[in-house]
Write a protein that binds this DNA or RNA. Sequence first.
DNA 1: CGTGTAAGGAATTCTGACACG
DNA 2: CGTGTAAGGAATTCTGACACG
Lengths: 81, 81
Amino acid sequence: MSEKVMGIGMVRELTGLTERQIRYYEDRELVFPARTSGGARKFSFDDVERLKDIHRKLRDGFHTFELRKAQLAGSSRSIET
Amino acid sequence: MSEKVMGIGMVRELTGLTERQIRYYEDRELVFPARTSGGARKFSFDDVERLKDIHRKLRDGFHTFELRKAQLAGSSRSIET
DNA sequence: CGTGTAAGGAATTCTGACACG
DNA sequence: CGTGTAAGGAATTCTGACACG
């Protein structure tokens, strides 16, 4: 499930997030989509789960920088790549 | 693996086939991609395997109509949806 | 029959910015 | 901080057709 194969449009459908939110989470270094030669983002199913998890945590009051820290620390287990 | 999530460009990379071939196999009713609202084809990982299998069989001398028949008959096992 | 290609159009995605708060 | 939006451009994908054999 770690193959980066789907475009942002499909991720939008699968996560219910907006492209803006998805791109922002990438900007905050919380997800790392691959890129096509043309520059288009490509996500994996794992990324989709991760994105949902990120959004859930932000909803619960966390901030992106905290999630990034937790990610580095290897804590707050959920869906790993 | 049956979720139709990737565009034809990714399928091209994963299968090594040309878009022309992929579209032709769909035209011959050997694969059934989903469509986005905009009309773009969406394939699953299963479709990718199926496409590779189709191409292998054509290379071995089979014709698309024969593959379609085999498909209906449920014979020539390989990758099922 | 299975596949290549040039043609024109429509849909997708991209970046940087202004906005609110 | 996290997200919305309008702006212009670039890359992607689509269909129907002519071609070869």
